[in-house]
C-alpha cells in the first residue's frame, strides 16, 4: 500500500513535468520560426499577414496587473487590518465568510458583472468605449482582494501579541502600534500575499477578455484598450491553425514563464518568513527556559 500512496504522490510531480514539457515543446517551434526577438519584442500582431509580435500584450498584461495592484493592495491590506484589529466579533462572523465568498465567485461572473456595471460607469465618467486598462484594473483589484486580505490577515494574526502591547505600553496609539510596529513586522507575509495576488491577476483570463477591449496596441492612456497575454490565447485559440496556433501556444509559454518567476519568488519569500518565525519561536522557548531556571533557582 505504501508504494501505491507513493505513486499517487508522484502524480503531482509528473503533472508539472508533463505540463512544462508540452508547453515548452509546443511553443518552441513558433519561437524559432518567428525569431525570438521578433516574437517577444515585435509590436504588431497580425496573424493574417504573418506578423506575430507580442510586446503589446506583454505590456498590456503588465499595465493591467500594475493597475490591479494599485487598486487592490492598499484596499486589501487596510481591510485585513480592519479584520485583525478593529472588527467586533459579531461583524467578523459576517465579513470573513463574505470575503471568502468573493474568492469563490467564478471569474466569468466577475467579467459579466464588470461588463454590465463597471464598463458603462467608466464610459459615462471618462468617455471612450469604457473598456480598457482602467476597467480591467478596477475589476482585477477587486478579484485579488480576497487573496491579499486572507494572507495579510493571517500574517498579522501570527505576530506575537507582545509586539502590539509593547508599542502600546510605550505610549503609541492603537493606530500607530498597528501601522508602525505590527505591519512592518508582518511585511514578508503581507508581501507574499501581494505576490500571490499578482499571480492571480496576470493569469486571469475570462474576466479580462470581456472588459479590456482587446486591441493589440500600445495603450496611450488609462482608458485605452489593451490586450493581455491571456486574452490573446482565449480569443484566437478557437479558430487558429498552423503557425498561428503555435504562436498562441508560445504566448502561453511566455505567460507560463512569468507565472513561474512569480511562483518561485513567492515560495522563496514564504520560506524566509517561515524560517524567521521558527527562529523567533526557538528564541522564545530558550528565553522561557532561562526564566524557568531562574525561578527554580530563586525558589531554592
Amino acid at each position: 500500500m505504501k508504494v501505491l500512496f507513493l505513486l499517487c504522490a508522484c502524480i503531482s510531480i509528473l503533472s508539472v513535468v508533463v505540463i512544462c514539457i508540452f508547453l515548452f515543446a509546443g511553443g518552441f517551434p513558433a519561437i524559432t520560426e518567428i525569431g525570438f526577438f521578433e516574437f517577444l519584442f515585435g509590436t504588431t500582431w497580425r496573424p493574417t499577414a504573418g506578423q506575430y509580435g507580442i510586446l503589446t500584450m506583454i505590456v498590456g498584461s503588465i499595465y493591467v496587473t500594475a493597475g490591479a495592484i494599485i487598486v487592490g493592495v492598499p484596499l486589501g491590506i487596510l481591510a485585513a487590518v480592519f479584520l485583525a484589529y478593529y472588527c467586533p466579533p459579531a461583524l467578523y462572523r459576517i465579513l470573513k465568510p463574505a470575503v471568502e465568498l468573493l474568492a469563490g465567485i467564478p471569474s466569468i461572473v466577475y467579467g459579466f458583472f464588470a461588463l454590465v456595471v463597471i464598463v458603462p460607469a467608466v464610459r459615462g465618467l471618462f468617455g471612450g468605449s469604457g473598456m480598457g486598462i482602467l476597467t480591467a484594473s478596477l475589476l482585477l483589484g477587486l478579484m485579488i482582494l480576497p487573496t491579499i486580505v486572507g494572507v495579510s490577515e493571517s500574517a498579522l494574526r501570527a505576530l506575537p501579541k507582545s509586539y502590539y502591547e509593547g508599542a502600546l505600553a510605550l505610549g503609541a496609539t492603537h493606530e500607530k502600534s498597528i501601522f508602525f510596529t505590527c505591519i512592518p513586522a508582518a511585511k514578508s507575509g503581507i508581501f507574499a500575499g501581494v505576490i500571490l495576488g499578482v499571480g492571480r491577476a496576470i493569469g486571469e483570463t475570462m474576466a479580462v477578455v470581456m472588459i479590456a477591449g482587446n486591441s493589440p496596441i500600445f495603450p496611450s492612456s488609462v482608458i485605452s484598450q489593451v490586450r493581455t497575454l491571456t486574452a490573446n490565447v482565449i480569443m484566437e485559440m478557437g479558430y487558429a491553425t498552423g503557425l498561428h496556433k503555435e504562436a498562441l501556444i508560445a504566448t502561453g509559454t511566455v505567460l507560463f514563464v512569468f507565472i513561474m518567476i512569480i511562483n518561485i519568488s513567492f515560495s522563496l519569500l514564504k520560506n524566509s518568513a517561515d524560517r524567521k518565525e521558527r527562529r523567533k519561536k526557538k528564541k522564545e522557548r530558550k528565553q522561557m527556559k532561562v526564566h524557568a531556571v531562574k525561578k527554580g533557582g530563586d525558589a531554592a
Binding site: 503531482s12 508539472v16 508533463v18 500571490l196 482565449i234
Partner: peptide, 17 residues
C-alpha cells in the same frame, strides 16, 4: 514544491495544456 507550483498555474495554462 510541485503541488504549490500546480496550484499557482492559472487555468488558461491548464486549458492550453
Amino acid at each position: 514544491l510541485t503541488t504549490e507550483t500546480l496550484s499557482g498555474i492559472p487555468s488558461i495554462i491548464f486549458g492550453l495544456f
